[in-house]
Amino acid sequence: MIEKTPILDTLTYIFLIIGILIVGFPIIYALIAATLPIHEVSRVPMPLIPGREFLVNIKAAWINGNLGTNLLNSFIMASGITIGKITVSLLGAFSIVYFDYRFRTVAFVSVFCTLMLPVEVRILPTYQMAANIMGPFQGLWDLLHLNGIVGWIVGHDIDLRLDWSLLDSYTGLIMPLVASATCTFLFRQFFLTVPEELCEAAKMDGASAMTFFRKILLPLSKTNIAALVVIEFVYGWNQYLWPLLITTNPKMMTAVIGLQNLIPAADDLPYWNVALAGALIVMLPPVLVVLFMQRWFVKGLVEPEK
């Protein structure tokens, strides 16, 4: 900057350090708590010197919180959402931007209506849908009194039910969260900035639509894809309400939901050290993804605003 302001500069760094400490405080404190035995963690105020029980607490959290299974489930769910969303929206955006067909506008509008509506506002009907994905067909079946007709043809009363539940399945965990247009919108925005000449040149060289997509558009979208991988992975890993509803089987529980079982209830012994050790394990994967892919993540987060 143009003037010299030594006092203000010092203050800047002091405030920055305070800010970083405030932001980091819950984690630092949780890290210390996770190293202490129970009688020290329940002392108020808790000692601030790390203890030696870190591995013991981690192990206890791993076993009590069933973290092995849960982390795997979370990983499958987060990766499924990431891959599903990016694949679906890359293809969709390609179709909308690079083709001219009759229902293009209809497709465009109907997809983009979903842009801002999160799954949280339509949980109950989405749950019913997931409980029986054949629901709409069942409705049609009932409406047309097909049971009666089939019964009349076969000669005796039958009750045919169309039933296919997605509850307690990876499909059920993943698919409803793939139904969002955010990524499609971003890819559309990006494709529109790709120079026309590239497509014209490719066509002149006799490339088909899919060749152009694979050989030119995909390599160009690499940074955008990387950014969305970070954002969607974090989004998928941190999902709460939907997995809470759709999984009842402990084998299908995700890691973030499973942590609830580790929080000491009012009458329990206050095993906060174990609960916090568990919380630290579960938050590690998305935090690492964000830290290691920081550059793309910041780009992906800030870009759509423009």
Binding site: F25, P26, Y29, N238, L291
Partner: peptide
């Protein structure tokens, strides 16, 4: 140092602060 809490799940943020 300032960016990482973005990756923390709201539920986990709840646990950390419930303890504090």
């Amino acid at each position: 140092m300032l960016i990482w809490p973005y990756a923390v799940a709201p539920a986990i943020s709840g646990i950390l602060w419930l303890f504090l």
